[in-house]
Design a protein around this nucleic acid. Structure first.
Ligand SMILES: NC(=O)c1ccc[n+]([C@@H]2O[C@H](COP(=O)([O-])OP(=O)(O)OC[C@H]3O[C@@H](n4cnc5c(N)ncnc54)[C@H](O)[C@@H]3O)[C@@H](O)[C@H]2O)c1
Ligand SMILES: NC(=O)c1ccc[n+]([C@@H]2O[C@H](COP(=O)([O-])OP(=O)(O)OC[C@H]3O[C@@H](n4cnc5c(N)ncnc54)[C@H](O)[C@@H]3O)[C@@H](O)[C@H]2O)c1
Lengths: 210, 210
DNA sequence: TATATTTTGTGATTTGTTTCACATTATATT
DNA sequence: AATATAATGTGAAACAAATCACAAAATATA
């Protein structure tokens, strides 16, 4: 029911992700400490915002000494449960699905697409490094790898149907690329990615803001 | 400087996009009028929120009669300047770039990828329906099609460099898929898409919310 | 035509988020 | 060791967003 507000990434989480990106950048440049204003400047927020965010997540720095980058990164990773790999499945090996299963950064962040599924038998091969399986093998894989999260990359017309199957088989989180408002039980997390909207909003802002 | 807050889609815009999606759904189901509570329920927000949003964007309904779906859609399209096609270029014909140039929904929404660019000569062909060109033809295309917005889909390491080129040639808005905080002049709009973050936040919520 | 009903539209109020301001503390300096 | 400096951490204040509450208007009903 509370789709939009419930499912989008909260702004504070989004900033946390950005801080991590900045920290990795600083680290690569040879720094091992940062102050809140360094991070703020890099991430495009105020230093107070940075400290407040850390305060909310109980991340502590060192007065006068700032934050040790490695400690910060570890604290942030702690929040996102980085200890163990997260198994994920993908449904729909079309244009976007193929790109996603080949995206190495998911693995770097310990998110493993263990298998993908497609109704089209011609897509069912091992060409992509991971198995592409028929839909009726989904339960087996979900149970075997304890999968809780799925990436949904099927055509709009099939999206609700595929989502039903996923929920049915025990999936509790969906990253949905189809521009469709999925009807799912309240406890299921849906994060809708709508790239048309994203591109369009860039166009909107370029025309309005300047 | 104010990267994060400035560049993300404002929540009210995001909701407007969602309303449109819902309206298209209602229309397909045969409705021609909706009330704020229909839209609210479908989009996952309160009816008051729907009316307030419309109020902000000066969209008027009919007391007791609700909103005519076609009028609403037209009003929303008005906000996003749907009259004429928007020309866009894409840089980086890798996995994600290839998926995007073949995405038909951009065209439905009148956003036309007029050409794409890659440093790798082997990618420069017409296999994808649009020309894939060498980088030194960028200025020509940007000027010819009055392009203001670019999709950036190059490796992280090249992203800043490619962004510099784009800004240099007159691009004012970038949809950036590389997980990199781009350093661009203040007036340039950057919308960062970070699919790792998006997937990770689904995992986060499935573990925390329930 | 008068009255009841339903829904919009929007100020007023509440709730949530960001910024401010400063006490606190770690480090540097004398 | 005492003092100055520079940073964090966090309540309080300011600001922004969402909800409430109800007047206004359109339609339906009697
Ligand atoms: N291509 C893009 O760049 C892009 C961008 C954003 C969003 N999307 C969205 O992602 C989705 C997929 O887009 P695409 O371009 O990859 O489409 P596509 O047609 O290339 O691929 C869809 C795949 O899903 C499979 N499929 C269809 N019905 C299925 C079902 N019920 N169960 C399992 N598999 C099924 C098809 O066999 C096909 O392989 C669409 O909803 C689209 O709007 C695509
Ligand atoms: N593959 C995905 O699903 C995915 C998902 C999210 C984000 N991304 C991001 O998108 C970007 C591209 O990812 P990919 O998987 O498509 O990579 P890729 O390696 O498949 O493709 C990158 C393409 O960019 C070209 N290129 C490299 N340097 C260039 C330059 N300076 N100018 C122009 N072209 C250049 C390469 O020749 C190649 O064709 C990366 O930053 C990645 O992190 C990818």
């Amino acid at each position: 029911m509370k789709q939009i507000t419930k499912y989008i990434i909260r702004n504070d989480l989004k900033r946390l992700f950005t801080y991590r990106l900045c920290l990795i950048g600083f680290k690569r440049k040879g720094f091992d400490r940062v102050y809140s204003y360094n991070l703020g400047e890099e991430a495009g927020v105020t230093a107070e915002q940075v400290r407040k965010d850390f305060s909310v997540f109980k991340i502590k720095g060192n007065k006068k000494g700032g934050y040790k980058i490695n400690d910060l990164l570890r604290s942030i990773e702690e929040i996102f449960k980085y200890q163990h790999n997260q198994h994920v499945i993908l449904v729909g090996m079309g244009n976007i699905g193929r790109a996603l299963v080949q995206y190495k950064r998911f693995i770097l962040r310990k998110m493993i697409i263990v298998a993908s599924f497609d109704i089209d038998p011609s897509k069912q091969s091992k060409r992509f490094g991971i198995p592409v399986l028929p839909m009726d093998m989904m339960s087996e894989i979900i149970n075997k790898f304890h999968v809780k999260v799925a990436i949904l990359a099927v055509p709009e017309i099939s999206a609700q149907d595929a989502a039903n199957k996923l929920v049915d088989k025990g999936i509790t989180g969906i990253l949905n690329f189809a521009p469709v408002i999925l009807k799912v039980p309240d406890e299921i997390i849906v994060n809708n990615i709508n790239l048309c909207d994203e591109l369009e909003s860039v166009i909107y802002y370029t025309q309005k803001v300047m």
